[in-house]
Design a protein around this nucleic acid. Structure first.
Lengths: 329, 329
DNA sequence: TTGTAAGCGTTATCAA
DNA sequence: TTGATAACGCTTACAA
């Protein structure tokens, strides 16, 4: 019960080329025959086979998207942004979860390459050399979101500057003893850069660096909780904590609340990301808002430009963030 | 710089058929020639073209997945489950956000059909007649997750029973005056069924129904917040509220906390879903745990069975839920 | 304005 | 164990 272009041609009493022409409006067709074709298509419930078409035209109108873990708070929103504009430009998206595993990244890339995706959106940590090489060899346009690479277009925010602003905000609120729960130190953007911002803010305010106030975290709830507990055990507790991700910040809040301390009166908290949850917890979380949806949308728009051969002026776009003041500070 | 099977055949000094045979291990090839072919593949960096292959073999090793909104708390986890087992069975997934819009569902389905997906995972409300018809006509295997249809396989939980258990739990805790913030009343599963569970629990406990204690919500944070405020304005406030989704429950908690009331001492809260956030808010949320990852994984496993022509014994699987008692009750 | 036919990169049948 | 060759369903010169 599955028909092809030949079937409709026969039914309409025309050649397959005319059918093709009415499907794609690629060449003028006499209105009358066009109607006959349309009618035949309708009657048979014919659907063109995009696979066959792709084989011929050499593009698939599909793009791959690699993401560490869609179940992780941060990504769904940016994936939504990606999907919306991809859809707008008539692309469908292949979703791949890499778990930040270089092997998996490589393997998925190969799979996507074989499936002839027109382009790729990549999210994750640094791109491994092997992956970079394969991307270059494949000749598939790639845009990075939330990470950078010398030879690839990307959309990011200025993590160091954002972190600095965050800490400055705390300082302006009168805090002098400010703790930090960082990201992973081997992660240059979310880890090191945000710590660097913290350092700069303190320096500008002439607040001396105290190593007991910085604890390394790992982005997830639990490490925020544990990091905060560690900070709370100090003889002199911080009066504010800057936490390098919202999820950790919410873990930190729990640690504080469990101790019977008040937020922000006893300890102020500042997160990073503006994950959906940040505005919903109580007290709500003051944070650095990454424009997640926009990052996805703009990154994809950038990709479509490459795909359509448009000239792109800025290939490494860094977006504005926003300091969102809520109840926790 | 892109090679095809012909190029490697030439380079290896064999015919394209032998190359095909070594790629697919479909027929024995003399070890020596096999090595030559492998070598040629390696040297050229050849990648088989899956599109061409699909055209010939008539399947694409890809499945579509339609979800209302990936940015909505509930879905990322199930999508992760889907992707994991899809990947295990060598399928890649096309992700589509429908926004619960019948038009969009139809449109996406058509797109997926044209792209020749081997199967489809559908999440959303009731399937519209138009969609059901098109699915049947297309002859593409579909499995439903979180919703049902007479003629289609699905994986769900027993919403009414789960809701009843939830309310019984509240009753056991000594509550007699129990409010409910429901889902949408036009939604049979998450809306009506959960309300029905509430009704049954009250009835069994011989607690009389009071219409001022039931307010209709809409799943999202805001409607939970507003619903709770409405309940809190009653002359006799409820001592417990059963909320038909975690996100609403968290909105309800805010309304309560803002009034200076304590959870669970003044008002107990019970949610539904066990979204990631439920265990992270403070106080943490007692809720009905839907096995989201498993729903995705099992649904996809079911789909692969259809795709591989295996016999399936149970096509409408209803999974167990779990009452997760935390701090809010 | 329409039709014929070559070709996209594979797999699979058939013969050798 | 291998090689020629006809599909798969479409688009696109080129001819008519």
């Amino acid at each position: 019960m599955k028909f092809n272009i030949k079937d409709v041609a026969k039914r309409a009493g025309v050649s397959i080329s005319t059918v093709s022409r009415v499907i794609n409006s690629s060449k003028p067709v006499k209105p009358k025959t066009k109607d006959r074709v349309l009618e035949a298509i309708e009657e048979l419930g014919y659907r063109p086979n995009a696979i066959a078409r792709s084989l011929k035209v050499k593009h698939t109108q599909s793009i791959g998207i690699m993401v560490p873990d869609i179940a992780n708070q941060f990504y769904p929103e940016v994936v939504r942004g990606i999907e919306d504009v991809a859809n707008m430009y008539e692309y469908t998206i292949f979703l791949c979860n890499t778990d930040l595993d270089y092997e998996k990244e490589l393997q998925y890339f190969t799979e996507l390459e074989e499936k002839q995706v027109d382009g790729l959106i990549f999210m994750g940590n640094l791109i491994s050399d092997a992956l970079a090489k394969q991307m270059a060899d494949a000749g598939i346009p790639v845009v990075l979101i939330g990470t950078q690479h010398d030879e690839m277009p990307s959309v990011t925010i200025d993590n160091a500057k954002a972190a600095k602003d965050a800490v400055c905000h705390l300082i302006q609120k009168g805090h002098q003893r400010i703790g930090i729960i960082t990201g992973k130190m081997k992660d240059p953007l979310m880890g090191k850069a945000r710590l660097e911002g913290y350092r700069q803010a303190l320096q500008e305010a002439a607040i001396s660096w105290r190593s007991e106030l910085v604890v390394e975290g790992g982005y997830r709830f639990k490490s925020g909780y544990e990091g905060a507990r560690q900070l709370l055990m100090l003889d002199e507790m911080p009066t504010a904590i800057f936490v390098a991700s919202d999820e950790m910040a919410i873990g930190a809040m729990r640690a504080i609340l469990e101790k019977g301390l008040r937020i922000p009166q006893d300890i102020a908290i500042m997160g990073f990301d503006n994950v959906d949850m940040a505005g919903k917890v109580y007290p709500s979380l003051t944070t650095i808002g990454q424009p997640m949806y926009e990052m996805g949308a703009i990154g994809t728009r950038l990709l479509t430009k490459y795909l359509q051969g448009e000239v792109v002026t800025a290939s490494q776009v860094v977006l504005d963030y926003e300091l969102i003041e809520r109840e926790s500070s």
